[in-house]
Amino acid sequence: MSLAISPAARAALEQWLDHLRVLDGVAANTLKAYTADVSGYLAFMAGHRGGGEGLAALATLPHADLRAWMAHERGRGVAARSLARSLSAVKGFTGWLAEREGLDATAVLSTRSPKFRRKLPRPLAEDDARAMISTVADQSTEDWIAARDQAVVTLLYGCGLRISEALGLPAAAQPLPEVLRITGKGDKQRLVPVLPAARAAVARYAALCPFDLTSGVLFRGARGGPLNPRQIALVMERARNALGLPATATPHAMRHSFATHLLNAGGDLRAIQELLGHASLSTTQAYTAVDSARLMEVYARSHPRA
């Protein structure tokens, strides 16, 4: 049974989380995951080393202790991908602590993450994406709900929005402008062009919606409250069954498709990164299933030669 985390370690964890929240704008869900990951790590170390660890000891733990923790996590069924995320959180906390305390955290920071196969997203073919947009409108007998579902899916594919971003649009955003300012993960803002088809789809929904759209969110559920993302997932499930598409044809797949089809049409990877709101180019590369040959092609075409 693990011992309690020392008060000093718990206080340091809270200060690190506050730092991430205030200075780095890290999203609430990410902070929640970091809290669980690092708290579990600190509790394990307290038990493994026989007591609540002081800050200096935490920052300078040897490789053997890190390996013991990782083995413990794998032993209780934690997948390699989840363990890699936990280790990343531990390194972030330890690096911050070492810098603050003037300590050498080389052993912790140099610990290798477990290898895992990164799941590549599966975008829809262009014809299938267009068919999905039209077919979701056939899944409801109420015109306004059919128009609503089609407008949401059009925004996912036409603008590359996350489902949370589309459903979080305020009613005041209608009529949609030619460029939307979207607040994404970590409260980071980006500008996204809006295609005429997306503006038209949202305008049709707004005209048919039986609820007051002068305040609150733009997209409403059947009783007038905010639309639950599960409803869009369900209507897309029915549409993909009607079209014979695989289970990977989800709301998020429409965002993948947006990026992939832009890239296939010659779009610049950095520009697509900005449109998607990714902090890292490697994330965009995974979303778009780009191979090394395609990256080299973009590099060869875009690099400013001397």
Rank of each mutant, 00 (worst) to 15 (best):
L61I: 04
L61T: 02
H63W: 08
A64R: 09
A64L: 06
D65W: 02
D65I: 04
L66P: 01
L66G: 00
L66K: 05
R67G: 04
R67T: 05
R67M: 04
A68T: 02
W69S: 05
W69L: 04
W69Q: 01
W69H: 12
A71W: 03
E73D: 11
E73M: 10
E73S: 13
R74M: 11
R74C: 11
G75T: 09
G75H: 10
G77N: 10
V78G: 08
V78H: 09
A80N: 14
A80G: 12
L83Y: 02
A84K: 00
R85M: 01
R85D: 00
R85T: 00
S86P: 08
L87S: 04
L87T: 06
L87F: 04
S88D: 05
S88V: 05
S88R: 02
S88M: 05
A89Q: 01
A89F: 02
V90Y: 00
V90D: 00
K91E: 05
K91H: 03
G92D: 01
T94N: 07
T94R: 03
G95F: 00
A98E: 02
E99W: 11
E99A: 15
E99G: 15
R100V: 15
E101Q: 14
G102T: 08
L103Q: 05
L103F: 06
L103S: 00
D104R: 03
D104F: 05
D104H: 06
A105P: 12
T106M: 09
A107F: 03
A107G: 14
V108S: 02
V108P: 03
V108F: 04
L109N: 04
S110Y: 01
T111M: 06
T111L: 02
R112V: 09
R112Q: 14
R112P: 07
S113N: 07
S113Y: 05
K115I: 08
K115R: 13
K115V: 11
K115E: 05
F116D: 08
F116E: 05
F116V: 09
F116I: 06
R117Y: 13
R117T: 15
R117K: 15
K119T: 11
K119S: 08
P121L: 10
P121C: 06
P121D: 11
P121Y: 12
R122P: 06
R122N: 14
R122L: 12
P123L: 12
P123D: 09
P123T: 13
P123W: 08
P123C: 13
P123N: 11
L124M: 09
L124T: 03
L124F: 09
L124Q: 01
L124S: 05
A125F: 12
A125G: 14
A125C: 12
E126I: 13
D128Y: 07
A129T: 13
A129I: 13
R130C: 14
R130P: 11
R130N: 15
R130Q: 15
A131F: 07
A131L: 06
M132T: 13
M132Y: 15
M132P: 10
I133Q: 11
I133L: 15
I133H: 10
I133W: 09
I133K: 10
S134Q: 15
S134H: 14
T135F: 04
T135N: 08
V136L: 10
V136R: 02
V136P: 07
V136K: 02
V136C: 07
A137G: 12
A137Y: 00
A137T: 04
A137E: 06
A137L: 01
A137D: 03
D138L: 13
D138T: 13
D138H: 12
D138I: 05
D138E: 14
Q139V: 04
S140K: 08
S140F: 03
S140I: 01
T141S: 15
